[in-house]
């Protein structure tokens, strides 16, 4: 067998063969991703520069940046600005989204840290806590929206019942319907649902911290609070940064919770919600496409800034 192969002219080397195989292994995935991600994204951007409508996708005409901003001077000399960038509804949605993302991720990080620290301690029933923690994560967003919608119901909701029972409020609050509380309602549900995810990611980071560091600190008599801020926090910072950006990206694109929990409330309408509303419900397809393109651009800028400023190692190469 060996004599035969030795006589043969040198074929591709092991490295070449493996790289060739890698190419064929990757190709189907790349094609699939191109079809469902890259191509639709490009088409969305293209639609955003046309006047396409739901029924007339193909007789769209090129309108350039008019969906974003157009300036026209009327014969009377008045200058009229139109487009998303001067649309107060859009800026309201931007503000809602940013506010929602910052507050929810802030609370989730804080709560997630607490839960992770608790789960990192050794105590009886730790498995039970982990199981309990996973429940909000496993519940579909729509289901949690409905569940909380019921609990936050103004007339029959248990939240109002509890709050009135302990005397915190003296009249029932229409949590999801009132302009003042709708955002709070959305935040409560989102924080409830995603803190577990945050906690698990932070816990994984905590578990990478060698135990003897804590023991050494304890032998040196360092106060636990100081240990947390001086040792634990710096050590889990990489894991924390990654967890925060994951959640942030998720929060910036939020759609389902808002759509189901507080339908048609201007106080909570986010960028995703308003884009889809224009695109599908109001038959301003191209206008909605422009808004979703803007959302994409905002997120892209945000991610670049975050990675650049925070030097976040998303690929995790340095941890190996």
């Amino acid at each position: 067998m060996t004599d035969l192969t030795l006589g043969r002219a040198a074929g591709p080397s092991l490295k070449q063969r493996r790289q060739r195989a890698a190419f064929w292994f990757l190709a189907p995935m790349l094609i699939a991703l191109f079809c469902v991600a890259a191509w639709p994204l490009l088409r969305t951007i293209w639609f955003s520069m046309t006047d396409a409508s739901l029924s007339g996708l193909y007789d769209a005409e090129w309108t350039g940046f008019d969906n974003y901003l157009s300036v026209r001077t009327l014969s009377s000399g008045r200058v009229v600005y139109r487009g998303t960038l001067v649309d107060p509804d859009w800026w309201n949605a931007v503000w809602n989204t940013v506010r929602f993302a910052l507050i929810s991720v802030g609370f989730e990080t804080a709560f997630g840290l607490v839960v992770a620290l608790v789960m990192n301690a050794e105590f009886k029933g730790r498995g039970l806590v982990r199981a309990a923690i996973l429940i909000p994560w496993a519940i579909p967003t729509i289901v949690s929206a409905k569940m909380w919608g019921w609990m936050l119901n103004d007339q029959f909701g248990i939240i109002n019942d509890i709050l009135m029972g302990i005397g915190l409020i003296d009249q029932k609050i229409a949590w999801t319907a009132s302009v003042d509380t709708a955002m709070t309602a959305v935040l409560i549900v989102d924080i409830w649902k995603t803190t577990p995810f945050m906690a698990l990611l932070i816990l994984a980071g905590l578990q990478m911290v060698p135990r003897d560091i804590y023991e050494a600190a304890r032998l040196d008599g360092v106060h636990p609070v100081k240990v947390f801020f001086r040792i634990t926090l710096p050590l889990i910072k990489p894991a924390l940064m990654v967890a925060v950006i994951f959640r942030m990206l998720d929060a910036l694109r939020i759609f389902d919770l808002v759509y189901v929990l507080t339908p048609n409330s201007a106080a909570t309408k986010t960028m995703s919600v308003i884009s889809r509303e224009n695109m599908i419900d109001f038959d301003k397809f191209a206008y909605g496409a422009a808004q979703s393109t803007l959302l994409f651009a905002i997120i892209a800028v945000f991610v670049s800034l975050y990675i650049w400023l925070g030097r976040v190692d998303l690929s995790g190469e340095s941890q190996r």
Partner: peptide
């Protein structure tokens, strides 16, 4: 490395951004 980052980026994509294009598809 670049490919891995791209794949990660796609999974973090705002899905609304492809909605119009996917709708057409």
């Amino acid at each position: 490395g670049l490919l891995l980052m791209t794949i990660l980026a796609v999974s973090m994509f705002p899905q609304i951004a492809v909605l119009a294009g996917l709708f057409e598809l």
